[in-house]
Write a protein that binds this DNA or RNA. Structure first.
Length: 584
RNA sequence: GACCCGGUAGCUCAGCUGGAUAGAGCACCGGAUUUCUAAUCCGGCGGUCGGGAGUUCGAAUCUCCCCCGGGUCACCA
């Protein structure tokens, strides 16, 4: 089904055409002056400008040409040429009822259907997930949910950092602490043990130490480079060891992701694309896209701006992450035939993606595919600098989630929320409230801006917070549950009066919010909509006592409205990755 | 130095394919509860949209210059 604004836009576009103007000017949007009207069309101003006509005259011609006049309560020309629109209350109600009956809740799928790869720029093996992964996880997950909801064919890929110099560092570090292991014996015939010689905790401890050692000791760095090289050449012991590193790290990452309710279609990593690199490099050399520079192989990408070339092969023959990213994009574009690849990655990597995309364009990978860096800002501490623990270390994601849930429970206790429920249910609610607090706080900001991590603020039950939304949803659920117990059924949605209009308008504008979020790859528009919807419901709730209403038709209509509202609210929250409890 | 992003109410931010009186949350002040979860709702206070010029009937939004903050800038990722 068409969205309400699309339906109106279609009618106005036709009218513009009949009035001798380009139909694009028929765009109808929600009014910015709710005191004057519900919707407005400003196209007459632009059309008049282009045609050097009088805007009011054009506006009048459009109104004269407009069909389906029976849908409108009032149409008027205002100011320099705004067209103000107010709908027949019955038409609005009918549209909302239709949305409620629609499988997609009134949000039309995007066309054409595209294949979209969402790359989460995943965690690095051997480094535990920390605050830095919070945003890519929450944002990327919301985007994959949104794109799917809008009918796109989404393939999400965690894209683990499971290759590169850090692997060599770990191998060298382990060869020193446990030299007796068979992985280091080049003559060992195999098979290698099935059990990993290290735990995630070991890796987490080893990595920073190894990294620091390489930084201060060039000989150690050289050993790490050599080990990396041998690993990449396929030395069996190193490969076996590497597999262990990846396995234990992935298992740990899975726990964190599952705590956040996030999953991926693919759990591939950088290593997956390594075999394709030599062929790609040959191809790029032959095509003259890649060329030698200062001992390395590069793709010049500096068209007019001062952009350094993409480094493909280091002077020592090794590859860099740009090499892997290019090979990855190549496979996604040419073999997986994706038409869009979204990289949900920290904004500080903007230049890197600019280089990769330019190189990919030169290589001809982007003729049927676009690459996009969905950049996001940092999560900061109260000091405005990237968030750290009290002792100055990096906050682990696991601890962060636990803190959010503890804080949620604390807030609930203070307010007496869920006080008399069984402890297990209470804990379950606290878990949902904590996650909702975290996710809403993250997504309500535009992704590009940094924000300050403030749990006490996020877990408040007032204002624009996750808990506020859950509370609103739970109140609707409670009404519907009581109605069902009393044998009351939702019925036909009656025409909107002043009391229901705000809620119906909010409901009708869901597709616009979803589209806006999609267009900018920015779920903050969904947060905005969720808040508006929750507030609209609260306003309605205040004025209309559903269960106490004596008129059965009105009561059934209100129940229907509540039902549709809950479905939409839960859907929007779901698109944000937020789960709603049954009661609080 | 070059490039990128930002500077909007006391605080945190939204709005930026130009459109009527610039919005929200928090904070502050006032009001609403015999009622389905008041954890809510309604109202008020509060702004040279960093500064200046330009384009336009119209600029927070587009262009240029300047100031301030952050980020990035070939063999790490």
């Amino acid at each position: 089904m068409l969205s309400l604004t699309d339906r109106l836009t279609r009618a106005f576009s036709a009218a513009f055409e009949k009035a001798g103007c380009p139909p694009e000017h028929g765009q109808v949007v929600e009014s910015q002056r709710p005191d004057l009207c519900q919707f407005q069309c400003n196209g007459a101003l632009a059309a008049a400008k282009a045609a050097r006509r009088n805007p009011r005259e054009v506006g009048q011609a459009v109104l004269d040409a407009l069909e389906e006049k029976e849908l409108f309560e009032s149409l008027s020309l205002a100011g320099p040429g705004f067209i103000n629109i107010r709908l027949k209350p019955g038409f609005l109600a009918r549209h909302v009822a239709e949305m409620g009956a629609d499988a997609a809740l009134g949000c039309p799928p995007l066309s054409p259907r595209e294949k979209v790869v969402v790359d989460f720029g995943g965690p690095n093996v051997a480094k535990s997930m920390h605050v830095g992964h919070l945003r890519s996880t929450i944002l990327g997950d919301s985007l994959q949910r949104l794109f799917r909801f809008l009918g796109q064919a989404v393939v999400s890929d965690i894209h683990l950092g499971d290759w590169g110099t850090q692997m060599g560092m770990l191998i060298v570090a382990l060869s020193r602490s446990q030299p007796g292991l068979p992985y280091f014996d080049a003559a060992f015939p195999g098979p290698y043990p099935a059990q990993a010689p290290v735990s995630v905790a070991d890796l987490e401890e080893m990595y920073p130490r190894a990294s620091a050692l390489c930084k201060e000791d060039p000989a150690e760095a050289e050993r790490a480079r050599q080990a990396t090289f041998e690993l990449q050449q396929g030395r069996p012991g190193y490969r076996a060891l590497w597999r262990h590193f990846v396995e234990v790290s992935v298992a740990a990452a899975r726990e964190d992701f599952s705590a956040l309710g996030v999953d991926f279609d693919l759990w591939l990593g950088e290593s997956h694309y390594q075999d394709a690199i030599p062929g790609m490099i040959d191809e790029l050399k032959r095509a003259g896209v890649a060329r030698p520079s200062e001992g390395a192989l590069v793709v010049p990408v500096d068209q007019e701006g001062g952009i350094p070339p993409l480094l493909l092969v280091k002077s020592d023959g090794g590859y860099l992450y740009g090499t892997t990213d290019l090979a990855t994009l190549r496979e996604r574009a040419l073999e997986q035939r994706a038409s869009l690849v979204l990289y949900v990655v920290d904004k500080r990597q903007g230049l890197h993606f600019e280089q990769v995309f330019r190189a990919a364009a030169k290589a001809g990978y982007l003729e049927r595919c676009r690459g996009e860096h969905v950049a996001y800002g940092t999560v900061n501490g109260p000091d405005g600098k990237p968030f750290k623990t009290r002792s100055g270390g990096v906050m682990k994601l696991k601890d962060l989630i636990r803190m959010a849930q503890d804080e949620a429970l604390k807030a609930m206790r203070e307010l007496g929320v869920a006080g008399e429920y069984p402890p297990e249910e209470q804990a379950g609610i606290a878990r949902k409230v904590g996650i909702a607090a975290l996710k809403y706080a993250d997504l309500m900001n535009h992704r590009g801006s940094d924000y300050v991590f403030d749990l006490a603020k996020f877990t408040r039950f007032e204002g624009r917070t996750g808990p506020y939304h859950l509370y609103a949803a739970v109140r609707v659920k409670s009404i519907l549950r009581k109605a069902a117990e009393a044998g009351l059924e939702p019925g036909e949605l009656l025409p909107a009066t002043g009391r229901e209009e705000g809620l119906m308008m909010a409901l009708a504008l869901f597709p616009d919010a979803a589209r806006e979020a999609h267009r900018h790859r920015a779920p903050n528009h969904l947060c905005e909509h969720a808040f508006r919807l929750a507030q609209a419901f609260s306003g309605f709730y205040q004025q209309c006592h559903i269960l106490g209403e004596q008129d059965p038709a009105l009561r059934a209509s209100w129940l229907q409205l509540a039902r549709i509202c809950l479905a939409q609210l839960e859907k929007v929250l779901e698109l944000l990755g937020i789960e709603t409890p049954e009661r609080m």
